[in-house]
Amino acid sequence: MKFMGSAIAILRKDILLELRGKESLSLMLFLSLLLLVIFNFALDTGKENVSSLASGILWVVFTFSGILGMGRTSMAERDEDAYLSIVFSPASAESFYIGKVLSNLLFLVIMEIFTLLFFAVLYDFEKIISMLPQLLPGLLLGTLGFSLVGTLFSFLTTASRYGEVLLPFLYLPVVVPIILGGVSSMDIILNAKAGGAGKWIQIMAVFDILYFAVSLLLFRYIIEE
């Protein structure tokens, strides 16, 4: 229980920092809004197209806003070596990792909720809100996958002199299965396509379990000095 206790403490610390205006969440939301506007210019999002384009647009927005947010939070840990006080505290690397995964997950979910709302308003597509209960498993599993890989990789990139700029290059190829799963399952549900989303939910679940296990094993090598 002590293990989860330290993880929760880290989660609380991140929420407090966010409330005190570390601005990573507001930046994410701002980017989401901006991307949605850009997509409106880039694609023909008329009434008849929006349903088939929705899952693609949304997951691209989730992906990029997510990269921005996760890159920032780990950069904040590296600045002034704030994370070292956690490394030297009795909390283990594993609970530190879980805490960071949870806080990233929380911020990602908040960003996604707002993005869905923006989308429903800007693209005149209320259906996406009413279908949220069906979409939820896919969204949550996908977001968890983002957070699991993103937390690990954003700490990797902080050591590089390229910093956060490097994050998308490492992160995007690895989360391809999640993006594929997220886009496809959402598309199947929104457009009532044949095939069923179940298979995709399975792939994302396998991905999450795999990366949870491996990241737990590897995270200690990233933060130990």
């Binding site: 990797l156 690895v174 299965p177 799963g181 396998v206 590897l218 090598y221």
Partner: peptide
């Protein structure tokens, strides 16, 4: 140390990518 982490993570991704793209 850091590149070893990528070497491991990237490799275990192969079957998942393979399966997902196939589906």
């Amino acid at each position: 140390q850091y590149s070893a982490v990528i070497g491991i993570i990237g490799y275990i991704d192969i079957p998942v990518i393979r399966y997902a793209t196939k589906w």
